[in-house]
């Protein structure tokens, strides 16, 4: 089975780039706090979403709504109305993390497929069965914590189709259960749909052409003149452990699973997700093109081989210009 290619769309231009270069589906969110990439200037108004859905359906492609943050009791109507609006606009599936919203979608829009968001933190057959039995989910996006062998076993045992992250920025914590950003800034992926938000980032020049970057006053890293400076995501900062200065949690690298694509397909993974709704149309075009070529190569009778040109193109758009297989590969630990 050739997995579906699900690409990010932070704008209409990105959506068009995705479909032009071979995406089977895009995932997108409204321009509000209901999704986990609630960045300024990003995401869709109702009008844009309607147009995006028309474009998709004209090409026989799909649009999934990412509605994967957790509303508090005082603000639930925004989330429910967003679900209802997206369904009225014609989205093909709802990607949801929170149980009361899954219940709302199942009750009011039973005909629209529900996917469990990666933010729902489900990593076992039992957890997937919970969401399947209670809310009728048909697909789940796995957190980036399982090894390839564990993904293969889960595909055998899961009551629903499995979607995995194939490429993009790497969350190294269980999605939905990381409060690092909230601890430092008060804003989190769960509640506000942001991680290490730009409004809290402060860059400063230091003597000797060095630079430092803080997140709400917490020093995340300093850079020598010849060092590439990366965005101060808290899990990718350099901290001191005694006398050692190190990337204690993770280096600034991106996930790239091209080399294990045949095994993911063999395992029966239903869909591959590309991360990056915060990235521009050029990124979406580049990444989608490479992954479409790779998926086409899987269909060919000749053995699959990762083309050096693919890796080169993906490296150009990767965070820190390095890529990793991340948790899929045991040695990553």
């Amino acid at each position: 089975m050739i997995p579906e290619l699900v690409c990010p769309a932070g704008s209409l231009a990105a959506l068009e780039a995705a479909f032009q270069h071979g995406a089977d589906a895009v995932y997108l969110g409204f321009r509000n706090a209901t999704n986990a990439r609630a960045f300024p200037g990003l995401n869709f108004t109702q009008e844009d979403m309607a147009q995006g859905i028309r474009t998709a359906h004209r090409h026989g492609k799909k649009v999934y709504l990412a509605l994967n943050t957790y509303p508090d009791s005082a603000h639930m109507s925004l989330w429910k109305e967003s679900i209802d609006q997206a369904v009225a606009l014609g989205v093909d599936a709802l990607i949801i993390a929170e149980i009361s919203l899954l219940a709302h979608a199942a009750r009011h829009h039973p005909g629209i497929p529900r996917h469990l968001s990666v933010q729902g933190s489900a990593t076992t057959p039992a957890a997937l069965r919970f969401f399947h039995e209670q809310f009728g989910i048909s697909r789940a996006v796995l957190p980036r914590v399982l090894s390839l062998a564990q993904v293969e076993r889960l595909c055998e045992q899961a009551p629903v189709a499995i979607e995995v992250f194939a490429f993009g920025s790497l969350c190294i914590m269980v999605e939905g259960r990381c409060q690092l950003s909230s601890f430092v800034t008060g804003h989190s992926p769960n509640s506000q749909g942001v991680c290490s938000p730009a409004a809290h980032v402060h860059w400063a020049e230091l003597p000797g052409n060095r630079r430092e970057v803080r997140l709400n006053n917490v020093l995340v890293d300093q850079f020598e003149p010849d060092e590439a400076a990366s965005y101060p995501t808290l899990c990718k900062g350099r901290y001191r452990n005694g006398d050692n200065l190190a990337y204690v949690l993770e280096e600034p690298v991106s996930l790239n699973t091209l080399s294990i694509l045949p095994r993911l397909a063999q395992a029966g993974v239903a869909a591959l997700k590309v991360e990056g709704r915060q990235r521009g149309p050029a990124y979406v075009a580049q990444v989608t093109r490479v992954w479409r070529e790779a998926l086409e190569a899987l269909k060919a009778p000749t053995p699959f081989a990762v083309q050096p040109a693919w890796q080169k193109q993906l490296s150009h758009v990767s965070e820190g210009l390095q890529t990793t297989l991340g948790p899929y590969h045991r040695d990553w630990h």
Partner: peptide, 28 residues
Amino acid sequence: DWSAVQRCVERQLPFVAGPTLNLYNHEA
């Protein structure tokens, strides 16, 4: 974790929801 919730539900056992289940509102 939801795995534990599922096991309790299957056995119709009462349970305490731990701090990592992400219960942010009254409907949940």
